[in-house]
Design a protein around this nucleic acid. Structure first.
Lengths: 129, 129
DNA sequence: CAGCATCCCCGTCGATACTG
DNA sequence: CAGTATCGACGGGGATGCTG
């Protein structure tokens, strides 16, 4: 069970699942955008409101990346004023599974985590001065 | 069900679970390090081997961050030559749950994802090129 | 309204060299 | 062996202004 494995790591495989996740934590806005689309299609400006502080440039970039990965669709209506709607695909919705798992973990262990962080700060203050 | 929600997003809460995850995708090596420790404690140099290409600086930084979050422990033995061992905590091991969920998703939808990407490239080549 | 263009900041990551 | 120090590359993200 705890016997050392050969450490053959498949994560160097370009097709490694961990590389394929459309939602990487480093991408600050992806989760938030998806949550804002969870209840149904939204327009560009409708997304800007709940995503307080996001700039149009970053929102456009993020949406394009998610569209590229087939997580959402972009539909432009030829109207005036222009209207564009973003909507999750089934593939996108399937991401809520792992996302919820991650959030559940965080909810459950948040206290523990913050305590560990604080304890670490305390112990390093002594040496840092 | 698909009725638009107020879009009250709790992810602006500093205590939002999504913010608390010790493993953010942007941190390139975190998952890999944890996988390398899954089977049991490992020394610094034992980690460098499977994590091909990681520099000692980055490995040290990453380990420190994970230690700070209580995900692993660092144990230095006062020997010569020096020996330091890293080992997952129960908290760290509990992360494999959500990690596996994410990997399972990726494994299941990788084909779909790559196809979407390719299709996107195709359709944008016409306008770009 | 729905973006794009431009410039800049900063954190992660990497390469290299050095130390207790 | 197990790191630290320094420098630099790179990319996400932000601020501001402009356009169809």
């Amino acid at each position: 069970m705890t016997v050392p494995q050969p450490l053959t790591a498949d994560f160097f495989d370009p097709a490694c699942p961990s590389r394929a996740l459309p939602i990487r934590g480093g991408e600050k806005w992806s989760w938030k955008i998806m949550r804002c689309l969870e209840a149904g299609p939204r327009r560009f400006s409708e997304l800007k409101v709940p995503l307080r502080g996001i700039t149009p440039k970053v929102l456009a970039e993020s949406l394009r990346a998610l569209e590229r990965d087939g997580v959402l669709t972009r539909t432009a209506y030829d109207e005036n004023p222009p209207r564009v709607e973003y909507e999750l695909t089934p593939l996108g919705r399937s991401l809520f599974g792992p996302m919820d798992a991650a959030c559940a973990w965080a909810r459950e262990h948040l206290d523990h985590l913050l305590a560990a962080r604080e304890a670490y700060e305390q112990s390093s203050e002594r040496s840092d001065g």
